[in-house]
Structure formats: structure tokens, C-alpha cells
Computed example of a mutant assay.
Amino acid sequence: MQYQAATATGYYYNYNYKPVSRPCYCPPVAVDPLERLAKLVSENAVVIFSLSTCCMCYAVKSLFSGMGVNTTVYELDEDPIRGREIERALVRLMGSSTTVPVVFIGGKLVGSMDRVMGSHINGTLVPLLKNAGALWL
């Protein structure tokens, strides 16, 4: 016979209920860092992969901030596990050992500090930002 008790709210609780422990097989979901990178980049108009202590990263973030562009900044050193994976994916993508800052505009790789500043100087950065919907001027 099961023992049930009424509570002040009128609900009954079955005190003889014993949960059954069953092994659950949940295969680990391994997401490729390049896929994670592509997802992060596709969700935002301007994405900067950065290190919080890097002076070049600070300069790029300041450039976009000064232009009034709302950027999504992913600080690689603030996420020790995924940050390392994404940093390795950026090395594979860029083909160089110097990875940060890496800037994506409109889902497309612009490049590192020298490419961003070069496109700013030659006047191609503003049209890129306008096409991505990050700048309305």
C-alpha cells in the first residue's frame, strides 16, 4: 500500500516513490572549433577575436568604438578552454602564428591589425561596415 500525504495546497505526494537508476548513454558532442568560429561570426556584424592584455587588440577595438560601431569582442584569454581551441582555429584560418586581433565584418574575414588599418586608411573599411549593417552614416 502506498502512503500519500496531503499538503496545505491540496496536492498529494507519493513518499514510496523510488527513482530507478538507469545508465544513460549520452555521446559527447564534439563541435569543431572552425564550426564554432563560423557560428560566432555569422551571428554578429563585426566580431573581434582579442586578448584582453594585447595593445594591438586595444587599438582595433578603439578604432571601431571611435567610429560608433558596435562590435562583438571575444576575449580568448577569458575562456581558457574554448579560447585555446578558437585560437588554434584562427591560426589554421589565418595561416600564421600571430593570431590576434582577428576581425570579421559581415561574416567575412578582414584580417589582423595591419589589414584593418590598411583598409581604414585606403577608405574601404567604411563601405564594408555599411554593407554589414554595422555603420549607418
Rank of each mutant, 00 (worst) to 15 (best):
N16Y: 01
H120R: 14
A132S: 05
K108E: 11
G111E: 05
M113C: 11
Y17Q: 13
G111C: 02
R36K: 12
V20N: 06
V73W: 06
S112L: 00
G68A: 10
E87Q: 15
N70K: 14
E87H: 10
W136E: 09
S112Q: 14
T99G: 02
V103G: 02
Q2N: 02
Y58G: 00
C54P: 01
Y12G: 01
A59T: 11
F104C: 04
G107M: 00
Y58Q: 13
S112P: 00
Y3R: 13
K130G: 05
T98V: 14
G123I: 12
V102R: 10
V69S: 09
I48A: 04
P19Y: 03
D114P: 03
T71G: 04
S97K: 08
S50A: 10
E75P: 00
G123A: 10
V29P: 00
A30W: 04
A30T: 10
M94S: 06
G95T: 07
V69M: 10
S97L: 04
T99M: 06
K130R: 15
A6L: 15
P27H: 12
V100E: 00
E35N: 02
T124G: 06
L128A: 13
G111S: 07
A59D: 07
A45S: 12
G123C: 08
G66S: 13
A134Q: 07
Y12L: 15
C24T: 12
V20A: 08
N131A: 14
V46K: 05
T7R: 12
M113Y: 15
V69G: 12
V116A: 10
N16K: 05
K61C: 03
V31T: 11
K39I: 01
V31K: 12
P127E: 08
L51H: 06
V100G: 00
A45G: 06
G66L: 07
G95E: 01
L93Y: 07
L137C: 09
L34P: 03
L128F: 00
T99F: 03
S97M: 07
E87W: 00
V60Y: 03
D79G: 01
I121P: 02
V20L: 11
A89M: 08
N44I: 02
L128N: 01
A59K: 13
N16T: 10
T72Y: 10
N44S: 13
P23A: 12
S112Y: 01
G118Y: 09
A6T: 08
A134M: 05
H120N: 15
T71C: 14
E43S: 13
L135M: 02
K108N: 08
A30Q: 13
A134D: 03
V60I: 15
V60T: 14
V116K: 07
P33Q: 04
V110C: 06
S119L: 15
L129K: 04
I86N: 07
G66M: 05
R88C: 02
T99Q: 08
T7M: 10
G66T: 02
N44R: 11
